[in-house]
Design a protein around this nucleic acid. Sequence first.
DNA 1: GACTTTCTTAAACGCTTGTTTAAAGTCCGG
DNA 2: CCGGACTTTAAACAAGCGTTTAAGAAAGTC
Lengths: 220, 220
Amino acid sequence: MVETGGRDTRERIIEAAGEVFARKGFRRATVRDICARAGVNVAMIKYHFGGKAGLYTAVLEHFRSVAGRRSRQIIDRAEREGPEARLKAFIRAQLEKLTGSGRPAWFDRLMSREVMDPTRALDAIVETGVRPSAERLVGVVQELLGRDDREPDLLYCCLSIVGQCLHHHYAKNVIARLYPGLAYGPGELDRLAEHITDFSLAGLAAHRKRHDAIEEYAAL
Amino acid sequence: MVETGGRDTRERIIEAAGEVFARKGFRRATVRDICARAGVNVAMIKYHFGGKAGLYTAVLEHFRSVAGRRSRQIIDRAEREGPEARLKAFIRAQLEKLTGSGRPAWFDRLMSREVMDPTRALDAIVETGVRPSAERLVGVVQELLGRDDREPDLLYCCLSIVGQCLHHHYAKNVIARLYPGLAYGPGELDRLAEHITDFSLAGLAAHRKRHDAIEEYAAL
DNA sequence: GACTTTCTTAAACGCTTGTTTAAAGTCCGG
DNA sequence: CCGGACTTTAAACAAGCGTTTAAGAAAGTC
């Protein structure tokens, strides 16, 4: 009756659900909306996934592999370079994640949705999606600070960096109202990445100088 | 029948609604929950406020005056000092806003709720709650950069500063999972404010040096 | 004290949500 | 073909939501 177009029902549901979940989050998304987009009866969600929650985890599992592909590409390109270039690549990748609109960006959107309004899937998302990224940043910052510990002040530095990036995503509605002139095209994203990089490198350099001075004093 | 205890019904509803809205946001809060806490019939919300949306705006209006009292106190204390001290006061006040749990903090919690998941009240909140604060920061940053324009790169600096502060609020669930050791008691808040201040002052100083060099070059 | 206005109540309405049911359709090996 | 397993369908269910109704209580007014 309905032309299945070759794609299986399960796939069609996951595809539609990925889009809807990414746009509205788990709670505000409705199974009826998802099923309408997939051209499928609402009962299929129980049949194939056991329920809305099961569908959500299936969607996360499905898009985990393709997630952050473009971000990883940006980061990998700078793999062999110095810590400054790797920091800039990390920052550019963070900004890229949050403005992407294609299918690979759905997982990233779900991640930031989850950050703001957690569900039970948060633990899994943190481990598979956030921690690897965070560990990479910790490594770069350790290198830039010339240390190998992870004292609170080092983590503060990392949080300062990602905070600058993600703020443009969290607060985009407010920023748009406060400063209607600011746009977020690819060119602005490059300039913004450059700003955050320079800002952070200066902050890190100052922190290193201060910390080294304290170490020196303590060594006496 | 029910002992009104002297407080008017309207007040009891607004008090309960303030707590519930601050904790759950507009959408996830239910009128039944609010009315149960207020010990009041659900129909009273239509009678006194016209509906849930009217109650929400009434709550915003009611708590607007007491909002940010402690923050303003922190900021005013540094009013006569240099821009560095005023920046630190601003940062400390931002952190204070997000960890406060008393009644004066409800408006601030509602503000950040609104930032993450806007309702129609966002415009009013931005104008009355966010813009004054943002303008103050712009002033301090202008002073620190030695400029009086508000080019995009200056706004980027401001956004870098508030981003560092608010990230600890937006992403608190994720940060708690990533780094279980980090706590947010008053002492940590002071240290965090000091970190963000130093980090940002270094970033601003480097930005100023870079910008002045460009200006000088352009003047030739 | 009767009357009007203001306030409050219990109950139900209409809607949306996720879920479930029972019947019908589809597919495929025998 | 045919029969059983797998899919899909339309419809309804139960719960929660904001809202509304109609009747009653409380309080002020003449």
